[in-house]
Amino acid sequence: MGLLLSREKKKNRVHAVFYGGILLCAFLLQYVPGVLPRVGGSGTPSLMLLAVVAVAMCEGDVRGGAFGLAAGIFCDANAVHGTGYYAITYMLTGLACGLLVTHLMQNNLLSCISLGIGSVFVNLSLYWLLFCAFGGVGNAGGLYVSFYLPLMGYTLLFLLPVYWLVRRIALGSKRIRNRAKADPS
């Protein structure tokens, strides 16, 4: 059993490396100029947010929150508004999605779509509310319609591929853990 558990620990580490790789890829795709086409002149899809939702659905509230915190810290390094804003919001998003999947919903495609749409809508709307509407930006309503709504749609195009990728990684490691628990010898 000791040997299986240490093998499981190694697999978990490899699994953590894969999640780190997803985080890095999402970060580079979202922030590096010229990789993805932009909407409204400057908008790129929030791939980091989708990764947070997917990981939270597959790994639960604590790990989802931790992943959200890590993703948010990366985003804050390039954010123009508020150091710590993305760290807090993405951590809370990860926590909320993890809790919902653990206690109320199942980890399936329908939940993925609902949580994805909900998270993207809430996060981008909150950003608009805090930094555009309350920030005194002229014609904030027009900005919401012309920039943020198309950005939400653009982001949601990537929801299913990101979820599928994260689920593949999560299922791979869960199989290892279950096998280790079922066969302790």
Binding site: Q30, Y31, V32, P33, R38, G40, G41, S42, G43, T44, P45, S46, A77, N78, A79, V80, H81, L124, Y127, C132, L143, F147, Y148, L151
Partner: peptide, 12 residues
Amino acid sequence: GRDGNDPFGSFT
């Protein structure tokens, strides 16, 4: 890097 959520084109 460019902040994709900022409609005013801020960058790093």
